[in-house]
C-alpha cells in the first residue's frame, strides 16, 4: 500500500508473520500439545482410524466438542444425539466470533481471510487474538489472527497424531492430567484476561450456574448459562458504571 510509510511488505504478509511469531511464543502451545495428545489417545483406545481423529482436529478445532464426539460415538450413541451434544458444547464459538471480528476487521478485509480467521476461533486462539491484535495496525489484524491460528492448529494436529501412536505407552494418570489441561488453562486464562466487571462477574456466574443446571437436568445448560449469566453480568456492569458516572 502506497500510503504506508516505512514498510514495503503487504499488510497481509506483515500481519501473518507477526501472527506466526505470536503463535510460537504462546503459552497455549504447551496446553494444546497435552490436550490433543490426550484426544489422539482417546480416539486410539476407542478404535477410530488415525486419519479420522487428525481430520477431526483440523475440521472441528474445539477440544470439548471432539472429546464429546469421540467418547459418545465410541460408546455407541445415536448420531443425532452426538450431533446435538457437539453443537451445544460449541455454542460458545458464536459469541466469541462476534466479539472478535469487529476488532480485527478492516476496510481491506476480504471474506476468504475472514472465513479462515473465523474457523481459527477457539478458546486458545481467541484469548491470544483479543489480547494481542489491538497492538497491530488494523489492516494487519485478520492476517495476524490467521498466523496465530496456523501455529496453534498446526501444532495441535501434529499432537493429535502423536497421541494416537503414543496411546499404548502412556500411563492412565498422565492421560488424566492431559485431559485436565483444557479446563485448567481455560480457568486461568479467563481470570487473566477478564478486566471489565462484566467479564469477571460472568466468569464467576458461569462457574456456579452450569453445574447447577446440569444437576437439575435442565437441557441446553451451556446456552442458558451464557445467556442468563452473561446478561446479568452485563446489566450489573451497566448499572455500576452509570452510578459511578452519576457521582462525578
Amino acid at each position: 500500500m502506497a500510503e504506508r510509510s516505512g514498510s514495503w511488505v503487504s499488510p497481509t504478509v506483515e500481519g501473518y508473520l507477526a501472527g506466526l511469531r505470536a503463535g510460537v511464543t504462546s503459552v497455549f502451545l504447551v496446553v494444546l500439545v497435552g490436550t490433543f495428545i490426550s484426544i489422539g489417545a482417546l480416539a486410539h483406545d476407542l478404535g477410530f482410524p488415525a486419519l479420522w481423529v487428525v481430520l477431526s482436529t483440523l475440521l472441528i478445532w474445539a477440544g470439548p466438542a471432539q472429546v464429546i464426539m469421540i467418547s459418545a460415538l465410541g460408546a455407541g450413541a445415536a448420531p443425532f444425539e452426538v450431533a446435538v451434544a457437539v453443537s451445544l458444547s460449541s455454542i460458545r464459538l458464536l459469541p466469541m466470533v462476534v466479539a472478535l471480528l469487529p476488532i480485527v476487521r478492516a476496510k481491506n478485509t476480504r471474506w476468504p481471510g475472514l472465513l479462515l480467521a473465523t474457523h481459527f476461533v477457539a478458546v486458545s486462539a481467541w484469548i491470544e487474538a483479543l489480547r494481542l491484535a489491538p497492538g497491530q495496525p488494523r489492516e494487519n489484524r485478520v492476517a495476524f489472527v490467521n498466523g496465530i491460528g496456523t501455529v496453534l492448529l498446526g501444532v495441535s494436529t501434529l499432537s493429535t497424531a502423536a497421541g494416537y501412536y503414543l496411546a499404548l505407552a502412556m500411563p492412565r494418570s498422565l492421560v488424566a492430567g492431559m485431559l485436565f489441561l483444557t479446563p485448567m488453562s481455560f480457568l486461568v486464562s479467563v481470570t487473566r484476561s477478564s478486566r471489565m466487571l462484566s467479564d469477571r462477574l460472568a466468569a464467576v456466574i458461569g462457574l456456579v450456574v452450569s453445574p447447577i443446571l446440569v444437576s437439575a437436568g435442565v437441557g441446553l445448560d451451556l446456552m442458558w448459562t451464557g445467556v442468563v449469566g452473561g446478561s446479568v453480568a452485563y446489566l450489573v456492569h451497566r448499572w455500576w458504571s452509570r452510578r459511578r458516572e452519576g457521582r462525578e
Binding site: R92, P183, S198, G206, P211, G226, G229, H237
Partner: peptide
C-alpha cells in the same frame, strides 16, 4: 454484552469438565 456471554459459557464448560469429567 456478547463477550460476557462467551465468558460465562467458557467457565460453564470449565465447571462441567471438572465435575462431570470425560475419559480417564
Amino acid at each position: 454484552w456478547v463477550r460476557a456471554i462467551a465468558t460465562a459459557i467458557l467457565t460453564g464448560v470449565v465447571a462441567k469438565l471438572m465435575l462431570f469429567s470425560p475419559g480417564a
